[in-house]
């Protein structure tokens, strides 16, 4: 079991430029079922992917692959033709929010937006548009979602993951890799790793991810990685206290970040004394979460939480 994505997930790509093509190829090498792409001016064409299989991914495949991905004019047409139930967005920032809304309109139940640098006002609109639709957005500005050995959607390196018991949810890309790597080395492994992204306005938040992991029978514990800015971690702490039945460990980045400066991520900013690492750590500790004092200790903190 896993959450959000699994071996049967059929994935569309929105934005088949250089980045989209590169990561689609990596996903196919991993064994993800990439069923179609959307590109208004290249509809009717077929994008061909060939290469050596990434055996860290889905088991039981030949050593090489050749996959033809058909390109459609609209998401609606792509869904009708392929039955896709997930879409990954690599569309450039000025047009990415529109791509998210198009996927939502077509009823794609899971939309994963990797694009970084989308104007905030566009995302405010997109979230409003998604409000009454039964779809889940992950991101933007995120590495994506992976269920090891089943399905990789996004830009994370597949080989550091291994199937296991821990659900991982994170606002940061490379810190997720760091966490996953440690969980692979200490044998806990992952059910699914979800990158929720570093933007101030995003789709899936910590509470959504925790809810999904809490309901997933295969997930035995959750590792969450937060950072300064906003109050999503405090909200998660309150939810954990009230609802969580599984052990949780966490790391919060940005203890040393100065106030008023955006630390790389658009959402990583302490403003008006709100959003400090100290406040988040305090809230999570009060909720019984085992805190990793440094990112090197994330795997150990998870072990400790599982042993409690």
């Amino acid at each position: 079991m896993s959450v959000l994505v699994g071996k049967d997930t059929k994935v569309l790509v929105q934005g088949m430029g250089k980045t989209g093509r590169f990561h689609t190829d990596k996903a196919i090498a991993y064994g993800t079922n990439m069923v179609g792409a959307v590109h208004p001016s290249r509809a009717g064409q077929v994008e061909v992917f060939e290469g050596e299989t990434d055996h860290s991914g889905v088991d039981g495949r030949e050593d090489t692959y050749r996959v033809e991905v058909p390109i459609f004019r609209t998401v609606e047409e792509a869904v009708a033709a392929t039955g896709a139930d997930a879409s990954v967005v690599y569309v450039p920032p000025p047009f990415a929010a529109d791509a998210i809304m198009e996927a939502a309109d077509a009823g794609v139940p899971l939309i994963i937006c990797v694009t970084e640098g989308i104007p905030i006002a566009d995302m405010v609109k997109a979230k409003r548009y998604l409000e009454d639709k039964n779809v889940r957005l992950v991101g933007p500005n995120c590495p994506g979602v992976i269920t090891p050995k089943q399905c990789k959607i996004g830009i994370m390196p597949g080989y550091i993951h291994t199937p296991g018991k821990i659900g991982v949810v994170s606002r940061s890309g490379t810190l997720t890799y760091e966490a996953v790597h440690q969980l692979t080395l200490n044998g806990l492994g992952q059910t699914t790793a979800i990158g929720i992204g570093g933007d101030p306005v995003n789709g899936t938040n910590f509470v959504d991810a925790l809810t999904a992991f809490n309901d997933d029978p295969a997930t035995e514990g959750v590792l969450m990685i937060g950072e300064i800015g906003g109050t999503a971690e405090e909200d998660a702490a309150a939810w954990i206290t009230a609802n969580m039945t599984k052990p949780v460990a966490a790391f919060i980045a940005g203890t040393t970040a100065p106030a008023g400066k955006r630390m790389g991520h658009a959402g990583a900013i302490i403003s008006g004394g709100k959003g400090t690492a100290a406040a988040k750590i305090e809230a999570l500790e009060a909720a019984g979460v085992v805190m990793a004092p440094t990112p090197t200790d994330m795997g150990t903190a998870m072990m400790e939480a599982m042993a409690k």
């Binding site: 830009i155 994170s170 606002r171 940061s172 890309g173 490379t174 810190l175 997720t176 760091e178 570093g198 990685i225 950072e227 300064i228 790391f251 980045a253 940005g254 203890t255 040393t256 970040a257 400066k261 630390m263 790389g264 991520h265 990583a268 690492a277 004092p293 440094t294 990112p295 090197t296």
Partner: peptide
């Protein structure tokens, strides 16, 4: 990566040093 860059500053501080900068070279 921004998160890792922040965490790197934090860990320098944890072991007793002071970071001179935040620098994310990107993905």
């Amino acid at each position: 990566g921004a998160g890792l860059a922040m965490a790197t500053m934090d860990i320098i501080k944890t072991v007793g040093g002071e970071p001179a900068n935040f620098l994310d070279v990107g993905g």
